[in-house]
């Protein structure tokens, strides 16, 4: 059977397609479980990005770039920082110091929870975006 160039790694491609959702899911787990157990934005971001790296390795950079474009990455990078800082600013607006999560909810404990959640989200988004764009720039021939 003559294989077209795109079909050459069919097995890998199909397996990858199966794996990627789980990788993403695991990343989300690490992300949102970060405030209770081991994990957090940094790790989650890397794992999340690794799904895209895998996609890029198997399907080629071109297709990954279509999935998540560099300009989108740039937006995500900025967005992550904004989420992080936004949390801090909101806590300031609510009467606390910068990043003082106690003020984010009525109960300081809940506040801490929400605060860490938001901040880790911001970190996660930025790390994901940065990792992927690092991959893009190393993998591209230019």
């Amino acid at each position: 059977m003559k294989l077209y160039r795109r079909q050459r790694h069919r097995v890998l491609q199909i397996v990858t397609k199966l794996i990627i959702p789980f990788v993403l899911l695991f990343a989300l787990y690490v992300q949102f479980h970060g405030d209770y157990g081991p994990g957090g934005g940094f790790q989650a971001g890397v794992i999340f990005a690794s799904a895209f790296v895998l996609h890029g390795l198997i399907f080629g950079l071109q297709r990954t770039r279509q999935v998540i474009t560099p300009s989108m990455l740039r937006v995500l990078m900025a967005l992550g920082v904004l989420i992080y800082l936004g949390t801090g600013i909101v806590s300031m607006l609510l009467g606390g110091n910068l990043l003082d999560y106690d003020f984010l909810a009525h109960d300081p404990k809940h506040g801490q929870h929400w605060g860490i959640f938001a901040v880790e989200l911001g970190v996660g988004v930025t790390v994901t975006a940065v990792m992927i764009s690092l991959f893009y720039s190393f993998a591209s021939k230019r």
Binding site: R74, V75, M77, A78, L79, V81, L82, L85, G88, I89, M92, N97, L98
Partner: peptide, 15 residues
């Protein structure tokens, strides 16, 4: 805090 937050906020906004 504002001393740091303001320019740090400006950076992603620029992007």
């Amino acid at each position: 805090a504002l001393q740091i937050v303001i320019p740090m906020l400006a950076a992603p906004l620029c992007v």
